[in-house]
Amino acid sequence: MDDLTRAVEAALFAAEAPMTTDQLAALLNGAAVLPALHALVDDYAERGVHLVERGGRWQFQTAPDLAHLLRRTREQPRRLSRAATEVLAIIAYHEPVSRAQIEAIRGVQTAKGTLDVLLEAGWVRVAGRRDVPGRPVIYATTADFLSHFGLASRRDLPGIDELRAAGLLDPVDEAFEALARGEEADEQGALEKGGESA
């Protein structure tokens, strides 16, 4: 292992929070740290800790197959209400998004406390203001959100098919989809019968 790779490793171990490549480079006098980071990823691949990138920030974390050993000592339970979970999902999939857009998607008004919980958790941040009349605040997810859920980027969020396979879609939604498909089939059948009698 060369001196630069060792220095990057030491900097990440000593850091109080995950670091970006720019932060590491600044700490190490402008060195090109990306090759060293990739070398460390390979070096730690079979160890009890892995070097991972989450939202553009680098950190060491427990290997996934060993996480259960430390869960009791480290895990801090955080129960989100159904409303907070829905709002978090909407922000993650549609960011940047305003409160009015969140309410339009959910179909109900969102309490201010719901967004406050997500902001305090560090999973959501104010991303600015939309350039429309009233200049509403817009929200986006944070690097802590990605880190907590083990995502390198928002592109790693599960798609609709993965959610359905995991049983995470509301059965009511699936029933409505089936009903809609059935109605479409009935209409098609009626059109075909009408065409035969004409």
Rank of each mutant, 00 (worst) to 15 (best):
E86I: 08
T62Q: 11
A25G: 08
T5K: 06
M1K: 10
P136D: 02
A67Q: 15
A45G: 07
Q188R: 06
V8L: 02
Q101K: 04
A45H: 12
T62K: 09
R154S: 03
L151R: 02
G189D: 06
A89M: 12
S98Y: 01
A25T: 04
E53D: 11
L12H: 12
Q109V: 15
I90Y: 05
A32I: 12
S153P: 04
A140V: 06
G55I: 02
F145I: 01
E86S: 13
M1H: 10
V33M: 04
T110D: 00
E9W: 07
S81V: 04
D43Q: 15
R72K: 11
R47Q: 12
V8R: 00
S147Q: 14
V41L: 00
E46C: 05
L40Q: 03
I105W: 00
A198V: 11
L4N: 10
L27C: 09
P96W: 03
V49R: 13
A127E: 05
L179G: 13
L51E: 00
V117D: 14
V49W: 06
L27M: 13
A14P: 02
F176W: 11
L69S: 11
A127N: 02
T21P: 09
L151P: 09
E162I: 03
P171V: 08
G150M: 02
Q23L: 01
L118H: 00
I138S: 01
